[in-house]
Amino acid sequence: MRIGFIGTGSMGSTLIEAFIQSGALNPDRIIATNRTISKVERLASDYPGLEAAGSNIEVAQNCSILFLCVKPTDYKNVIHDIKPAIRQEQIIVSITSPVLVRHLEEQLPGKIAKVIPSITNYVFSGATLCIYGDRLEFEDKELLENLLSHISAPIQVSEEHTRISSDLSSCGPAFLAFFVQKFIQAAVEETGISEAEATQLASEMVLGTGKLLTTGGFTPASLQKKVSVPGGITAEGLRMMEKELCGMFNNLVRTTHAKYEEDLEKVEALFKDIKDD
């Protein structure tokens, strides 16, 4: 079984490298292409055996599972290129959030899935969000999740909750990193601790906290309760944060959802054009 990738930009290359480095796939089981061919040629050079294809249709013709790792605006050309080659038994996986399963099911005869990865998959951690079309059988889902389990925890979500699920698992690392960055900057500015030392301490804290919230058995609420003592320093800090951050995360969710709805409208118009062609 060969796995195909159309698009080897940031997330496409992350998935390819994670699959190879985790041992999920040998390079010779991967065929990939990119609009800028030099990008996929670099991957082929780094991972001997990986095939750099010269066209989208070449990838589609030579794989059992096809990952579409392209921007929404690129789907019209990609679908035009691959449609003649897609087979009913192929699994087509889109990683593009606003492209809905029904959009692809209307255009392609294959088994359609949507998988939203995370940068955390690069270190074989975090979640991959899985949304399945009606054509996938149990065995297809099992095959896909077995592959993804090498680099993540595959979690099935409803397409209705794609955006908020992505906020938490895929955008979340950037949001959390922003919080940590600001914490470090404040520590340096207020106390004179070196940035390197503050960064090391904060990074180790995030790693340990993640373990407590996963394998450690804590919830966010129970962890706060465990660390803070009534009237103590942590409790005072939490009280201040509760006051200062009130409503901020609600605004964050509203902001990401507004952008998603804007993108979805553009995708709907794009696929209407494809249907009308």
Rank of each mutant, 00 (worst) to 15 (best):
I86M: 14
Q88G: 00
Q88Y: 12
E89G: 01
Q90C: 04
I91Y: 07
I91M: 12
I92W: 13
I92L: 14
V93M: 02
S94Q: 02
I95D: 00
I95A: 01
S97G: 13
P98Y: 10
P98C: 05
L100F: 03
L100Y: 02
L100A: 15
V101N: 14
H103I: 10
H103L: 13
L104H: 05
L104Q: 03
L104D: 01
L104I: 03
L108G: 00
L108Q: 02
P109C: 05
G110M: 05
I112C: 13
I112K: 09
A113R: 00
A113W: 06
K114I: 03
V115K: 00
P117Y: 02
P117L: 04
P117C: 04
S118M: 07
S118Y: 06
I119A: 12
T120A: 15
N121Q: 09
N121V: 10
N121I: 01
Y122M: 11
Y122V: 04
V123L: 14
V123C: 13
F124H: 10
F124K: 14
S125E: 05
A127E: 07
T128I: 07
T128M: 12
T128C: 15
T128D: 10
T128H: 09
T128L: 10
L129S: 06
L129H: 03
C130M: 10
Y132S: 00
G133M: 07
G133N: 04
D134V: 07
D134L: 11
D134I: 07
D134E: 15
L136E: 09
E137L: 15
F138Q: 13
D140A: 06
K141L: 13
E142T: 05
E142V: 04
E142F: 11
L144M: 11
L144D: 05
E145W: 04
N146K: 14
L147I: 12
L148W: 12
L148P: 06
S149C: 07
H150W: 15
I151Y: 08
I151A: 01
I151W: 11
I151M: 13
S152E: 02
S152K: 00
P154M: 02
Q156P: 11
Q156V: 12
Q156R: 14
Q156L: 11
V157D: 01
V157C: 05
V157Q: 02
E159W: 11
E160M: 07
I164T: 13
I164N: 06
I164P: 11
I164S: 12
I164F: 13
S165Q: 04
S165V: 03
S166A: 15
D167R: 00
D167N: 11
D167H: 10
D167M: 13
L168N: 04
S170H: 07
P173G: 11
P173V: 05
A174S: 15
A174Q: 10
F175P: 00
L176F: 14
L176C: 14
F179R: 00
F179K: 00
V180D: 09
Q181M: 04
Q181D: 15
K182D: 08
K182E: 15
F183H: 03
F183M: 14
I184N: 06
Q185S: 12
Q185F: 08
Q185H: 03
A187T: 07
A187P: 06
V188P: 01
V188R: 02
V188T: 07
E189M: 12
E189H: 08
T191A: 15
G192H: 10
G192A: 05
